[in-house]
Design a protein around this nucleic acid. Sequence first.
DNA 1: GTTCGATCCTAGCATCGCTAGACAAGCAAG
DNA 2: CTTGCTTGTCTAGCGATGCTAGGATCGAAC
Lengths: 192, 192
Amino acid sequence: MSVQERKQRERAERERLIVATARELAEQQGWDAVTTRRLAERIEYSQPVLYSHFRGKREIIGAVALEGATEMAAALRAATSAADGPRTRVTALARAYLEFAARNPAVYDAMFELDGGLAFANEDTPPPLKDAFAALLESLGEVAGDGVHPALFTEVFWAALHGLATLTRAGRLPPEHTEPRVELLVARLAMV
Amino acid sequence: MSVQERKQRERAERERLIVATARELAEQQGWDAVTTRRLAERIEYSQPVLYSHFRGKREIIGAVALEGATEMAAALRAATSAADGPRTRVTALARAYLEFAARNPAVYDAMFELDGGLAFANEDTPPPLKDAFAALLESLGEVAGDGVHPALFTEVFWAALHGLATLTRAGRLPPEHTEPRVELLVARLAMV
DNA sequence: GTTCGATCCTAGCATCGCTAGACAAGCAAG
DNA sequence: CTTGCTTGTCTAGCGATGCTAGGATCGAAC
């Protein structure tokens, strides 16, 4: 059985390599540059190997998105756990969210802009995505205000963050005034 | 000169046909289905004709985006002019914005998700885009609150609407609770 | 050592955006 | 009316894309 196990290990290792390479390439040159040929060349295998791991390019994007969701959840929790008081936590959360989006644009795209073939907002949603939303909910739920459902509040706050992140990165909003925008958002939405 | 004028008119007419057809095809089957070949076939001309009007597919998307911006500005103004009182106006504005995005998904994509090669948030921004932002500013500026720059407030509110629109349409947010989300957003952000 | 199955690669398909160069239609000059 | 030229359009093709079929190769098992 040891032989099979070794092969499985190597296969899993190669799969990680594919995802990591795709992510790296996307961050360096954008998702348009992530073609199956270039990706295959970088991992030093031929194209069809990719298709023995993933159904297609789409699933590779999805894998990057899941990886990103895990990291984002961790980043959000790290930022909020260092802050005390609901208000400070929400501000830290908002800043961490936007910073994650700005520093990992390709990953953020994989999560929210591109089609990675992932299910959202239903029972088939993969755990990392649910957990990322949970990380938001943890800090945002406590400032939802009386009579407002925490999940609903989280959705609205999240949408605002997502809007700021995407519009800024796409050049629709000048990037200079990010900080005052965050402050305004927190000041108005969060009920201390 | 009459001959030249007629030709110019016909050319302009054909250009409108291209844009309208691209938009129609995109709304019917998504932007992925808008290929230069299919588009050429629908307007009953050959592919290269498209390139005598536009530099490439990108510019066609940009043209659809501009058309959409004009319509959106009109829709927003129509919705707000029928409401009296700042608070009612803002609610009407938010609903109109989200409805426009939901009813014209391909146009909304052309405006904000796809690359139409348009300049944003600087002096080169085409008039229709500036005007659409102005339409937002007209109603949102009056509820910015004391000491808050109207443009900054508009950016934040707009980002929130954009986030709701895109996340909902991409299946990231369940579409059922759109109305309470809008109400929460207006209740918190707008200072009556 | 031989067989056989898993693994991987070469080669190719259909389609994409875009362009060069041939061709025809229509106008101006003789 | 014919000739020549400009203007407009089309056919054909390039390189690149995602994806796949079918053959070659390699290693494990008897």
